[in-house]
Simulated assay, not measured.
Amino acid sequence: MENNKKTYYITVGSGQISQLSTASAWDFKIEATDEEIVQLREYFDQVYSSDFQGFLRSHTPYVQYHYDRENDAIDDTNMKIYRMIYELGDEEAKEHIRTNQLMSKINEQE
């Protein structure tokens, strides 16, 4: 089976996935198949959807952050995103995730 991996540049904050390193600032460089990119895009879409639901919920000020399911969904999905970036990323991406102690949080979810 062919590998068919391509290089992508990921910006986590905006959920941007690009094959052009010069298109905009990026956070991580990964090598991924089309199927892996589809999965990563779905995770970014989930974060956006949960974030929008959280925005709507934010108009109910008596619900604290740690009791907010939308925030829990965003946190869980972000860990899935960082796990994928760690698995698919170059050494610099892996080092960034290790240095910022995201691996321990990712491993807690398993």
Rank of each mutant, 00 (worst) to 15 (best):
residue 63 V to A: 05
residue 12 V to H: 13
residue 36 E to P: 00
residue 51 D to F: 10
residue 86 Y to P: 13
residue 29 K to E: 06
residue 70 E to H: 15
residue 75 D to F: 07
residue 84 M to G: 09
residue 76 D to S: 13
residue 6 K to W: 00
residue 15 G to D: 06
residue 84 M to Y: 04
residue 26 W to Y: 12
residue 108 E to K: 14
residue 70 E to R: 06
residue 96 H to T: 10
residue 66 H to R: 10
residue 13 G to I: 07
residue 15 G to V: 12
residue 109 Q to R: 12
residue 19 Q to H: 14
residue 23 A to H: 14
residue 36 E to W: 03
residue 6 K to A: 08
residue 57 R to W: 05
residue 35 E to V: 09
residue 9 Y to W: 02
residue 72 D to H: 14
residue 48 Y to N: 13
residue 41 R to L: 08
residue 41 R to A: 15
residue 79 M to H: 10
residue 13 G to C: 13
residue 61 P to Q: 00
residue 69 R to N: 11
residue 30 I to K: 01
residue 34 D to C: 05
residue 41 R to V: 05
residue 101 Q to A: 02
residue 9 Y to P: 02
residue 109 Q to S: 02
residue 5 K to E: 15
residue 69 R to P: 14
residue 12 V to S: 07
residue 37 I to S: 04
residue 88 L to E: 09
residue 99 T to C: 08
residue 22 T to Y: 05
residue 98 R to N: 02
residue 98 R to I: 06
residue 47 V to Y: 01
residue 29 K to H: 06
residue 72 D to A: 14
residue 39 Q to K: 12
residue 33 T to S: 15
residue 89 G to A: 10
residue 54 G to S: 12
residue 18 S to W: 05
residue 97 I to E: 01
residue 46 Q to A: 12
residue 67 Y to H: 15
residue 107 N to L: 05
residue 39 Q to C: 10
residue 25 A to S: 13
residue 93 A to W: 01
residue 73 A to C: 09
residue 92 E to V: 08
residue 4 N to W: 01
